[in-house]
Write a protein that binds this DNA or RNA. Structure first.
Lengths: 220, 220
DNA sequence: CGGGTTTATATTGCATACAAAATACGTTAT
DNA sequence: ATAACGTATTTTGTATGCAATATAAACCCG
């Protein structure tokens, strides 16, 4: 009998994870060339698993392969974000609708608590903590849909938008609006009102879109 | 000056394409083990590019990696389909809404023509041709959204459902319903009515869901 | 004869080696 | 001085080889 065999993840998976982190943190900025030898030395692996990892990231869309010239960290353009946000709106809306139907009461209570934390961070002007709790709430609602494929799809899209790093600069105004929408979200969830939660989430992403485009305007 | 340089795709890309075809056609059935040596010999390449291709397919979800035991063609379960269809509904709905706003008149006319062909195939009971024209119409509408990310996302999900091969057996009744919904779709598109087209598309995927689940019931 | 253990074989995982292409560099010619 | 060419170096692409793990087979013992 051995039911709990320990299978440590293959190297190429570990490497892919690490690369994902480096890209997500911005340590590997968009447009950066991935030099295989260099990365191999840094991570202490041979080129084979590294290259396998790069191929994976390429199909994920995180890097772009240039034949005979290696891979670069893919750049997320304004157009990309413009394309992605409406999709996110639909999907988050769907997730919210399903969550309002399926979530357990204690799970909803948990979200309420995290939401309250988020509001505190907002009031204290703690941007990083705000974004983190914000992200967590969206994640929990989506997971509350019970639809893993939906969670994966949203995550993959969300990662790209996040990497664009347009969202850092909110105006006081749009930030307030976002928080009030979040308040409404939790209320709709507590009332288990699928249609309402869906509508709010769609509206919420729309707010985000406006914020991002506004920030792009200002930065030109 | 050389603007039309011939860059032939890297081996691992070609191999991935070929594998995708084999899986999609059912030649490599779900659950089949991918033996590296065997495939290498068949395709006349070494293991390195083959393995890179397999990694790509794994992140696409077409195959499943089992550490130290290679890869198997992933099996699309009933649960998977149940998860995917609501997502498809949302996304196709979104695509339709955008398409109704953006598509050119001649593009809409083209869809009308293909639609008429499809109806003929329906009347002549030509199942294969029906499915093909059907698929083409959905593809054209989605592409009409002008949102490439949306097209890609839908295609990736759609591929999985198609691979499940539940949809082959429609009842006369559900087939008729599907055709009539398609008729409404084209009408809404010609009227450039975004909300209506979106609603029909969502309803249409719901019909598909019912059909598939019904076919699953019967096959038990 | 059957269950379990050992041994052999096959298969995957990773590293290295070689080939081809691209980039960088230096030289020459204008 | 600069542009263009050719060579050297780096970097990527592919193949092969070795180690580790899993599967299959043979064997032993009850």
């Amino acid at each position: 009998m051995n039911s709990n065999v320990i299978v440590r993840a293959p190297l190429h998976v570990q490497v892919a994870e690490r690369l994902r982190l480096l890209i997500d943190s911005g340590e590997l900025a968009p447009g950066t060339r991935l030099n295989e030898n260099e990365l191999c030395q840094n991570m202490g692996v041979s080129r084979t698993p590294l290259r396998e990892a790069i191929r994976s990231l390429a199909t994920e869309g995180l890097v772009e392969l240039q034949p005979n010239r290696g891979a670069i960290v893919s750049v997320v353009s304004q157009e990309d974000v413009t394309e992605i946000l409406p999709i996110m709106a639909s999907l988050e809306g769907l997730g919210g609708r399903l969550a309002a139907m399926h979530m357990q009461t204690d799970q909803i209570e948990q979200i309420r608590q995290i939401h309250n934390q988020m509001v505190t961070h907002y009031q204290n002007n703690e941007v990083t903590e705000y974004f983190e709790t914000n992200r967590l709430i969206h994640e929990l609602i989506t997971e509350g849909s019970g639809n893993q494929t939906l969670v994966d799809t949203i995550n993959s899209l969300s990662a790209k938008v996040r990497r664009a790093r347009f969202s850092a600069q909110m105006t006081r105004e749009s930030w307030a609006k976002a928080v009030s929408e979040h308040e409404e979200m939790v209320i709709a969830l507590e009332a288990r009102d699928p249609e309402r939660l869906e509508a709010i989430l769609i509206e919420h992403v729309e707010t985000k879109r406006t914020t991002i485009l506004g920030s792009l305007q200002r930065s030109e």
